[in-house]
Amino acid sequence: MTLLSVSNLTKSFGGIVANDSVSFDLNEGDIYAVIGPNGAGKTTLFNLISGVLRPTSGSVQYAGRDITGLAQADIAALGVVRTYQLVQLFRQRTVEENVQIGFHLATRGGVGAALFRPGWVRRQERMVREKSRELLRLVGLESQAGLVADKLPYGQQRLLKIARAMAAGPKLLMLDEPAAGLDTQETSVLGDVIQRINDQGITIVLIEHDMNLVMRMATRITVLDFGKKIAEGTPVEVKVNPAVLAAYLGEAELE
């Protein structure tokens, strides 16, 4: 079943056309990868889907519903959650608190609820505690729960970001370069975590430069270059596509 359908999505910044009529569909349960050289427009594509930017033209359908141009928070509330390349963790808060803050959209209650703690709030708080533990277990950080996030090594910080995003209860999880800056060991742990999340029935879209990871995990791949989609297919199909080889010429990453 199609979960997300992007059609003719275009975004221009002044003279630069960052996304040029990009279309693709992804099915429920996919691990869908978006690859392409730096500046190809991958992050822009994520920004358009998640409502950070409004497209110049084109549309985004999610679960049979037009979500083009909706506000970021509304799209997240529908279950489309993403991590950002640049957005940071709450470095002075503990690992557990970071995940708990991630439950914001999935929970309710303001000042009144905090003060009087009616039954539903207590149940919700218990749920938040239990589920954050569960998420920490999912990404393998449960023994670091009480540590200040800043103290985590780089690779684990990345996993924490993913756990925090998972707290929002995504149906579609969008990861922007999760492996950037990680070593092989850390990348392989990350791959396992992504696989486990996917096994829970969560669809994943992934921007990634690490071709080993992409080739290992992706069910389908779209290749962007200068804002245009130049290829789409399974890892094997994309690997031998001459247009892709040309785009990556000199980057040698595909091998």
Binding site: F90, R91, Q100, I101, F103, G109, A113, A114, V121, Q124
Partner: peptide, 21 residues
């Protein structure tokens, strides 16, 4: 509470808090 966690989040990083809704 949820309210307090949101305040703490804002105190540390407004963009990150915003990104979490």
């Amino acid at each position: 509470s949820r309210f307090g966690r949101a305040l703490l989040a804002i105190g540390e990083s407004e963009p990150a808090a915003n990104a979490l809704g």
